[in-house]
């Protein structure tokens, strides 16, 4: 399965910009994003679908270094389907 980075972040405005900035600056491909607040809304969980890359360990380290990032985990058990944008498209049509 494709690598997925799971992040626990402080739910501050701009936190997504910090993370995407880190990827875009390094021209590191970000294929899918799934994000939402958890608990009382002070934290969010983010899933980033990425591609296998030699630089992946370094990206994990840099994500860990961001002040608003509270936890980083690399997972290989997330089905690609959860990032499939067509799912939401179909939901819309059904409603």
């Amino acid at each position: 399965m494709q690598p997925v980075i799971e992040l626990l972040v402080a739910n501050h405005p701009g936190v997504m910009a910090r993370i995407t900035n880190l990827f875009s600056r390094r021209a590191f491909n970000l294929e899918g994003i799934l994000c939402g607040p958890i608990g009382d809304g002070r934290e969010s969980r983010i899933f980033l679908q990425v591609t296998e890359d030699d630089r992946l360990p370094r990206v994990l380290k840099e994500l860990n270094g961001l002040h608003d990032v509270l936890g980083v985990m690399l997972r290989y058990d997330v089905p690609a389907g959860v990032f499939d944008p067509r799912r939401v498209g179909e939901m819309k049509m059904a409603s």
Binding site: P13, G14, A17, R18, N21, R25, L66, H67, D68
Partner: peptide, 13 residues
């Protein structure tokens, strides 16, 4: 905030 995001250790609005 956006301008200084990549050139600070951290920033706040």
């Amino acid at each position: 905030f956006g301008l200084t995001l990549p050139i600070t250790k951290h920033n706040w609005l």
